[in-house]
Design a protein around this nucleic acid. Structure first.
Length: 103
DNA sequence: AGGTTGACCACGG
DNA sequence: GCCGTGGCCAACC
């Protein structure tokens, strides 16, 4: 079943997450399949261009791991960055490769 | 209230 | 390519 924005919002609020983290995760949900964005771009999307570091903190807390495509978020220099879901960075790379987002 | 930590960034050697 | 340094911000203790 597809995860709607409203549903994600109530789950996250229920977890007691901060507004900042909620915004990060909502923005992450909008990333189209087959594309990647950087942590910095993501920070800019939520109106805090310099909070790219805190963006990482927020994604790590992602309570909806498979449904929010946090694997589509990479570093500014083009490398992958970290990934806390099972499989780690290796899994992240293979998923992106399967989507055609990276070579 | 203050210090530490981290899925980062940019720059330099 | 690697490593160190300074800077940034929010979360956590």
């Amino acid at each position: 079943m597809a995860l709607t924005r409203d549903r994600a919002l109530s789950i996250m609020k229920n977890k007691g997450m901060s507004e900042f983290q909620i915004k990060v995760l909502l923005a992450t949900m909008r990333i189209p399949k087959g594309e990647v964005v950087t942590y910095k771009e993501l920070a800019k999307m939520i109106g805090k261009p310099k909070a790219y570091r805190a963006v990482g903190t927020a994604l790590k807390n992602n309570p909806l791991a498979p449904q929010i495509p946090c694997h589509r978020v990479v570093k500014s220099d083009g490398t992958l960055g970290n990934y806390s879901a099972p499989g780690g960075t290796k899994k992240k790379r293979s998923m992106l490769r399967a989507e055609g987002a990276i070579k």
